[in-house]
Write a protein that binds this DNA or RNA. Sequence first.
DNA 1: TTAGAATGGTGAAAAATTTCACATGCGGAT
DNA 2: ATCCGCATGTGAAATTTTTCACCATTCTAA
Lengths: 215, 215
Amino acid sequence: MTLMIPEHPPVIPDIVIGRLPLYLRALKHMIQEGKRTTSSRELGRRLGISSAQIRKDLSHFGEFGKQGTGYHLQHLVKELQQILKLDRLWPVAVIGAGFLGHAVASYNGFEERGFRISWIFDNNPEQIGQKINDISIQSMSELEETIERENARIAILAVPAVHAQAVTDRLVAAGIQSILNYAPINLEVPENVNVGYSDPVIQLQHMTYYIDKGD
Amino acid sequence: MTLMIPEHPPVIPDIVIGRLPLYLRALKHMIQEGKRTTSSRELGRRLGISSAQIRKDLSHFGEFGKQGTGYHLQHLVKELQQILKLDRLWPVAVIGAGFLGHAVASYNGFEERGFRISWIFDNNPEQIGQKINDISIQSMSELEETIERENARIAILAVPAVHAQAVTDRLVAAGIQSILNYAPINLEVPENVNVGYSDPVIQLQHMTYYIDKGD
DNA sequence: TTAGAATGGTGAAAAATTTCACATGCGGAT
DNA sequence: ATCCGCATGTGAAATTTTTCACCATTCTAA
């Protein structure tokens, strides 16, 4: 008889998960270029990543390549999509219909990569009822009811910084599990909620460190 | 007589540099809240980072705190701004005046954090000459001449993915050293040029991995 | 004046991440 | 049919990053 050693589900480092979408994006580009296969070396060259790292990352999930040949693009893409749960279309709520919310909601690149902007909220009476890309802007007062009824899981936060935390609290209470935050503040959320940040100034400030001002 | 051992300028890990803007942003918030001092513990709590890490990060650049007391906010902010070369106002060129370029150029949060949108370019004749936030949209044909004349160092790229690499090549040739890229592709640049990426889909795809679909 | 609590800076230890390097297997060319 | 080059998957090593744990210092309060 075997001892009952509980099988820990293998925990994959988050830093590995974070690279998979980059692999996926590059692999899809290759398909569009008409390629059928690639290698860890070629993919690494495109992304500025070592081939060993790519192989190691993929090895967490299975064996997707063939020695001597490399990876079949269609197959690897399908595997990555499955791993990242992109084998479906995730509906996304956009909160805030200012310039930024408009830009996000008008972007047509979501659908082919697994997401669809399905709801837009704002508290400006003049905007409510107007349409962006065929989606009617709803009042913020309908936020909770809509998210709960529709079982929304993902939100993009494009409201002014002063309101971001309060809106976040409402989103979390309503059941949102992933938030992409465009407001320049750190959000406090329970640990079962994930937050992604997009503050262009943070990135610019990072880069300025390396600028050699030679003028 | 001492042996001439060449002093390596201490190389600071990039991952450390990347956290400094986050510290800076949080510290400024504290100032706005009326606080005068803080501690590594308090800052860490706000950012979800260990206090030890904050102390270690800062120790790369000097000793900015006082034992028993913590850090004087104004002083630490000033030091961080100096380290990140934010003790000046960096002019930034925005390339692309679609929805996204508009949103970026209309955002008023740049100036207080070290940047000013100074030029906007687009190739749509209908847009050229129009103004966003008092800046006239210029033709793409003026790109190189303007960048070189004005000594621009930083660009925000908000053009369709198909044009992103070609525009990048022009920016680099004209002397741009930092590019914040909103197009969903990996850019190839010489190693003296820095690229920051902002592709919302990449972040969403990262987060979906962790969503537990319990419905 | 002194005791005690709070805090920074830091060498050492631990943990995480990346790279190395090689056994193995596939496929095309001769 | 066989050989050779290419490419994967992977333990082990190297490197990087984070955390630990403690001394020294400062401030507060009794």
